[in-house]
């Protein structure tokens, strides 16, 4: 069979719309996930033991199960608990946020842990108050150190967002599958879809590497 990508031109708008939805889902879930992840990281450092445990179980559970099953669980099971239907958009955002938050809480935690004891000693020797220490020394360093990994997590959410096609969300993956089914030309369609994901994700991974180097250099003390 001959490979011919030209017919895809007819589906350009559909594919772009799908990409738009993928990006929208990713950005919303990423933004909400950062906030949720930061809260989770704080909860995991809480002085109240049960709070720490619940947060830990939550994080481990979302990290330890397939995202696909999380999506199914939220889409099919949540409505039974809530007593109202969830639109697939809500379910998709909810799932990616809950999952992304779990992943990113680990990133924040690693960032906080990476601040060495000497930094705390220095704060102490200079007589900095706990508040100044938290806001001027710990938080900026933890955040700076977390930025590249958080961005990587964002790329992860972008890729995982393809799974919400399984609950009929009309994003890039879903539209690709539909076009492939309609035209019977999976080679061109799936290659094109893969390339679209790649074109977005690849430059971002370069950005992560670049940021990592810059930040490492700053912290190479």
């Amino acid at each position: 069979m001959t490979i011919d990508f030209s017919f895809l031109a007819r589906y350009q708008d559909a594919l772009l719309m799908g990409l738009g939805m993928t990006l929208r889902l990713t950005l919303i879930a990423f933004a909400l996930g950062i906030v949720w992840g930061f809260v989770l990281a704080l909860l995991r450092n809480s002085s109240i033991a049960p709070v720490r445990w619940i947060a830990a179980v939550y994080v481990e559970f979302f990290r330890g199960t397939p995202v696909l099953i999380q999506i199914f669980w939220i889409f099919y099971c949540m409505p039974i608990f809530l007593g109202t239907d969830l639109s697939n958009f809500t379910a998709a955002v909810l799932c990616l946020t809950l999952y992304g938050g779990a992943i990113m809480s680990e990133t924040f935690r690693a960032g906080m842990k990476s601040i060495g004891r000497e930094q705390y000693d220095a704060c102490h020797a200079l007589g900095l108050s706990p508040w100044t220490r938290a806001t001027r020394i710990v938080l900026p360093q933890a955040t700076l150190r977390s930025v590249p990994v958080l961005l990587s997590n964002g790329i992860g959410i972008f890729k995982e967002s393809s799974l919400v096609s399984a609950i009929g969300m009309m994003e890039l993956m879903f539209i690709g599958t539909t076009i492939s089914n309609r035209t019977g030309r999976p080679v061109e369609v799936f290659t094109a879809v893969a390339l679209i994901y790649f074109v977005v994700a690849f430059p971002l991974t370069r950005l992560v590497t670049w940021l990592e180097k810059r930040i490492l250099k700053r912290f190479a003390i």
């Binding site: 890729k159 967002s161 393809s162 492939s180 999976p186 799936f190 893969a194 994901y197 690849f202």
Partner: peptide
């Protein structure tokens, strides 16, 4: 880079169909 920067789901479909 291709495998790291695309969703696994796309890769699986690509293998099965292409």
């Amino acid at each position: 880079e291709l495998f790291r920067c695309t969703p696994v789901l796309v890769q699986i479909l690509w293998f099965f169909y292409c």
